[in-house]
Write a protein that binds this DNA or RNA. Sequence first.
RNA 1: GGCGGGGUAGCAAAAUGGUUAUGCAGCGGAUUGCAAAUCCGUAGACGCCGGUUCGAUUCCGACCCCCGCCUCCA
Length: 482
Amino acid sequence: MLKIHNSLTREKQNFIPIEPGKVRMYVCGMTVYDYCHLGHARVMVVFDMVYRWLKASGLDVTYVRNITDIDDKIIKRAAENGESIHALTQRFIAFMHEDERALGVLPPDHEPRATQYVPQMLDMIARLEANGLAYRASDGDVNYSVRKFPEYGRLSGKSPEDLRAGERVEVDANKHDPLDFVLWKHAKDSEAEEVKWDSPWGKGRPGWHIECSAMGSEILGKHFDIHGGGADLQFPHHENEIAQSEGAHRCRFVNYWMHNGFVRVDSEKMSKSLGNFFTIREVLKKYDAEVVRFFILRAHYRSPLNYSDAHLDDAKGALTRLYTALKSLPLPSGEGWGGGGAVDWSEPHAQRFKAAMDDDFNTPEAVAVLFDLANEANRTRSPQLLAQLKVLGATVGLLQREPQDFLQGRITGKPSVTLGELTVHATGTIRHTPESIDYLIRERATAKKSKNFAEADRIRKELLETGIVLEDSAAGTTWRRA
RNA sequence: GGCGGGGUAGCAAAAUGGUUAUGCAGCGGAUUGCAAAUCCGUAGACGCCGGUUCGAUUCCGACCCCCGCCUCCA
């Protein structure tokens, strides 16, 4: 039985879908005006893992992750760049997709963009107005009247009294109450036509929170199973979503709320405002994308995750152990590595793996099982256990490449991002190609045959200095990147 | 100030009222021309102080420290 930690109740609960066998899940995605950073990578990877595990559990999942393609920051950035918001957002959506594919993130079933759902948002605002929860302020904005929604604060565990609005931010005089938030922003003369939509309240554009309420209910229905996002969205974004959705539809909005922890740098939250972020593509120039994915899944999704090169190096070493074990798995006849059989769920490791994953997606524990599996497979030389390792890895989007591709630093498929090509390490003095490495391996074999170990060792050392490790075995010599 | 999360061996990171987490690094051994990889063995831990208990890292209380949300943020 799958258990999920529900932010709404702050405890693990048995997961019971609204409709048996089906799961409807919504995750807050990115605002597209810049490159994605590692914090975004964590949301993508974490919920991709959730998506994959729900599917592996036999559930029919509908996964929606939205794209915010209209908001203040986008307008500002487009103006700075002297381009349309459409051009700006299209570009960064494409970059985001590249980053995701590199990280092994499956495309969600739906990826709605806010600008495509303005009519649904207007409809929702009208309902809120009809229900007496929205009002038109003197400046022309339409606001949500938080005090009229008694449940407000339930998700974040805050009471309106405790919020002390205005303590950190100036209170907007147009609001009836400082906690009220905007549903519809009136158009300003200075703004481009591109960001103005007609509405019963005059020209304008949607507030941020309404898009998720509108897109969620439009695609998944008024009541669905799981809603996720970064922990910083719990308040006010998700709190406001609940107020809007339940206020408009007069029914329960979401059963299980999930929030992932932050990526940190030097024990501080990685964020745009602090400026301490690393973009995904920046990191992918230095580290294999699967190492980054493994790094994320090696921690529990709700725990903080400290980013540093040392930690990535560590993750790389660990993943190398798994792929090294997999190296001796014979290729299934006629099939490439992309394929893979079904998991044998009766096997003990698989049972432990499942128990871990079912316990609020405990990927650190599940990964530990993978290592136990690798150890036993190495010891017993069992192809069955290696096959099991590979298919279990698949359930969380790991270990699907040909081992030599990983070990020798190649990328499977053709991500359009330029990633670790075979240029060896920066510390190296000579850069080798696979051909030159093979040549040197043959030279060394000749030297070894004539017992010229000094020359053999010299060649091995020369390669090692450029980051290439040679491994001799009965079957011959293979190489991998250090 | 309000609310919430956390402090585990050199580093990372889980579980658990009594029994090996796991990975990297370390140490000893097997293997190897020597290595690497692999295997076997080994050392090392639960912030501090009390309490409950036959027994606490695990439960309870106080304290110290760190982090997050309360503003846009994944």
